[in-house]
């Protein structure tokens, strides 16, 4: 039983560390803030969750705290990335847009807010 848990936990730790690395690589390679947020948030969330769960499997006494940490990472990472993305757009950092018509649906909201600011 102990050996099986050890093998599964090791695999979880390995997958977790590889995804953490891929998140950091995505931050370096992507062209603008929003794409960097996409790569950074998703990959590090699953990476951290998987690594911490792996340690929890290796050391069964710690599993409660490991689950608390996993839940905390799962809640906090998307919230902070959402706050950052909105802050960057409100500062006027417009995203790089791909090919296609009418790609930036949030621009109208930004323009309306700017107009109201000028009026007041």
């Amino acid at each position: 039983m102990r050996e099986v848990l050890e093998i599964i936990g090791g695999i979880f730790i390995l997958i977790g560390s590889i995804f953490l690395f891929l998140g950091a690589l995505g931050i370096v390679r992507m062209p603008d803030v929003y794409n960097r947020l996409q790569a950074g948030t998703k990959a590090t969330t699953l990476g951290g969750m998987s690594l911490i769960l792996g340690v929890g499997l290796l050391e069964p006494d710690w599993i409660f705290k490991a689950i608390i940490l996993v839940l905390f990472i799962g809640f906090s990472n998307p919230i902070s990335s959402h706050a950052l993305a909105r802050a960057m757009y409100k500062r006027g950092r417009f995203p790089i847009l791909g090919k296609g018509e009418n790609m930036d649906a949030y621009r109208e909201v930004y323009d309306k807010n700017k107009e109201e600011e000028v009026k007041s």
Binding site: L22, Q38, A43, G47, G100, A105
Partner: peptide, 21 residues
């Protein structure tokens, strides 16, 4: 996560970003 990993690793960086509502 596998989607992000595929995009990050592939040399040509296959993205077509935009904002939808």
């Amino acid at each position: 996560n596998f989607d992000v990993a595929r995009r990050v690793i592939s040399p040509s960086l296959p993205i077509n970003p935009g904002i939808v509502k």
